[in-house]
Write a protein that binds this DNA or RNA. Structure first.
Lengths: 216, 216
DNA sequence: TGTACATCAGTGAACGCGCGTTCACTGATGTAC
DNA sequence: TGTACATCAGTGAACGCGCGTTCACTGATGTAC
């Protein structure tokens, strides 16, 4: 990770300057993962991490904000992928399913994705804060609509499957998002509090909000 | 509130320098309420707001952190008081109550206090972030235990009354806190999201977590 | 009622810091002859 | 195989900024005689 003495960087060959761009984003991402928040992330620190002087960054990003946007966009995509990749522990074959089995499979997917979301947030609070924290909207991110939309969709889909016509899937998914966000940020900032078991807490929310029996 | 041209301040008389201390805390509090976060709050800005030079602050606070702690401590007390003051809309006389009435009264208190908490947070996101945000623990606040403890107690008490022996009051109160925190912070930072009705959302959480019938 | 004095609330200049950003430049590399 | 040259990735110095904090001081006030 970060070394006290920055490694001097071998200069790229002409035509390969683009490589530096990736290295810069990588370094910014690594620092963001270590540091507490995007606000504490300075261009100069990123340059130090890469082994470069700060002005060299301007060949690839016209502004600090633009660089941060690149980092955050990549992380958003990564989080959405992590949710989609999260599989329920005991996935059964999709065939020979009645409606009840389908509902319970969808609930398992919800559980798996909420666990993935919370794990992602708790592992790197600084990254999470950059995505969903107080200054998230100042980063100039412009997806279609809200930047968290792809992530939210990965939650809304299985909730819809689980509820079918019986319930307001949008409201339930929103409530789940709120609960997960609360878990990640409060557990990160209130280290002194006596938090119970994480999975049990998540499970309480999923069960209560989806009217499902608890698994633990 | 803040004026562009700071009002020149009349010098306190000898022996009355202590007055400045209160004015400084008031100004810092006002700026915190306006600004987004404590990190953006500078000693010099506070001094400007009071109509004083920055070094004058050091007569009353040895450090910026100590000043912020004073502000935050006062706000914590204010939030706890706001919760305790929150009364259910239709409070009935305490006499002639059976167990069922007592439970429903306790649930009403829970509803009232959660509404008060969320209202407090949404009205002043900067203040709220200073109390419960990512950097809250760096403020050097030392109550007995965690600084939010008095606030948490104001929530735990009615939850305990509502549940009696049937349920884990600590877990439910914790979940409610998490949900409220999620509501406040996500609604503050994700302004672009289509949030539904606030009271309805809060109500869903209270009902789901306390196994109570929904009121709306 | 008048003067000398001590108190002390608050000032003004200065410090060193890290920041984002600009600018003119250097010097290793690949290419053309 | 050797030399001149153009490219361009990255450097180094400098800018103005606001910050927290320090220090020696000023000058209005209340008090003692």
């Amino acid at each position: 990770m970060t070394s006290a003495t920055p490694a001097p960087r071998a200069r790229n060959r002409p035509g390969e300057g683009g490589r530096l761009r990736d290295d810069i984003v990588d370094a910014a991402d690594a620092l963001l993962a270590d540091a507490g928040s995007a606000a504490r992330l300075s261009l100069r620190a990123i340059a130090r991490e890469v082994g470069i002087t700060a002005p060299a960054i301007y060949a690839h990003f016209t502004t600090k904000e633009q660089l941060l946007s690149a980092v955050v966009a990549r992380r958003f995509a990564g989080l959405a992928q992590a949710l989609r990749d999260a599989e329920p522990e005991s996935a059964e074959p999709a065939s020979t399913r009645g409606p009840a089995e389908q509902r319970s499979a969808a609930i398992s997917t919800v559980r798996a994705r909420t666990r993935a979301y919370v794990a992602y947030g708790l592992e790197h609070p600084g990254v999470y804060a950059a995505l969903f924290g107080p200054d998230a909207d100042h980063l100039g991110l412009t997806y279609e609509g809200s930047p968290g939309e792809e992530v939210f969709a990965a939650l809304l889909d299985p909730v819809s499957s689980a509820l079918g016509d019986h319930g307001d899937a949008l409201a339930v998914a929103t409530d789940l998002w709120v609960a997960m966000h609360g878990i990640v940020t409060l557990r990160s900032s209130q280290r002194g509090f006596v938090w119970g078991d994480l999975d049990a807490q998540l499970d309480r929310f999923v069960s209560a909000l989806l009217d499902a029996p608890r698994t633990r």
